[in-house]
Design a protein around this nucleic acid. Structure first.
Ligand code: MN
Ligand code: MN
Ligand code: ZN
Ligand code: ZN
Lengths: 146, 146
DNA sequence: ATAGCATATGCAATAGATTTGCAAGTAGTA
DNA sequence: TACTACTTGCAAATCTATTGCATATGCTAT
């Protein structure tokens, strides 16, 4: 009854897509695995600093670009004038963005797939992905609006 | 039977929201009325130059910010690292963005309103607006993919 | 039509986000 | 362990967007 705990191996996952497993890349993956909200480059850089992983903003930008190209992450924009990133492995879901405090919640229900077929039929446009964001007020801001 | 052609009066529309009708603002409104795709600041600036309307990028940014604040325009992001704008008077609709050639088509059908009520009920989040973009390949790129 | 004033613009400087060139460092492989 | 292609750090360059300030102009009240 030797229960083998197969913990997620970042190195293998990186090598699988022909990327070298460097300390910075591994740390970024761990960070993404443990955050529930899409993060921006500055947040990632702060995390690396805190973990004493040597890095540089340019490197983080490069990492996020290549992760996105390789399909490890997904680049998102909430009209903030900068990008955020989340693991692409997170299932199809969308975001509830509070216009007052900026909090981002995940929202999993998705009714879009049916719509995509319609679009293909009516417009001849082949949908390969979509982005859906809801803006408004989160539960706490809704009451005591700041 | 004097058919009075009431053409849209930019000056009145601007004054209605307490904005002065300057040449640049009027030209921007005309441009937005005649484009079918959300435009960015550079495109607007190019149009103003072509029309010999004196302007400056800083001024265009200021105009688009105040138009958006006043509800004349809507700020949109297609993950390009910059904003685009379209008239807010355009009814609720979404966009089909070709990943190959960048063409943007409008798509009017919207099945989201029902979903918004669900969100309010399940998450207590008050939805005030949403953004939905479809990415993929437009009809022509779908065939002879470049 | 004109004066007066608050608003808008032009221009230059500044702030942020992201990209790029290049020399030095390192992961993966033999 | 040595080799080589891939990565990184750092500085400089690009872009997008914002801001300060002096000047210009739209709007309102004579
Ligand atoms: Mn998410
Ligand atoms: Mn549109
Ligand atoms: Zn909130
Ligand atoms: Zn296309």
């Amino acid at each position: 009854m030797t229960q083998v705990k197969i913990k997620h191996d970042c190195k293998l996952e990186l090598n699988d897509v022909a990327l070298r497993a460097t300390p910075a890349r591994i740390a970024v993956m761990k960070f993404l695995e443990n955050t529930t909200t899409p993060v921006d480059v500055q947040m990632i850089k702060n995390y690396l600093d805190k973990q004493n992983v040597s890095s540089d903003a340019a490197t983080v930008f490069r990492i996020m670009n290549i992760f996105t190209e390789k399909g490890i992450t997904r680049q998102i924009s909430f009209n903030e004038g900068k990008f955020r990133y989340e693991l692409a492995s997170r299932e199809d879901h969308h975001h509830l963005i509070c216009k007052n405090c900026g909090k981002v919640e995940d929202f999993s229900y998705c009714a879009i797939p049916a719509l995509e077929k319609d679009i293909q039929k009516k417009k001849g446009f082949l949908v390969t992905s979509h982005a859906l964001e809801f803006y408004g007020l989160c539960e706490s801001c809704k009451d005591r609006q700041n």
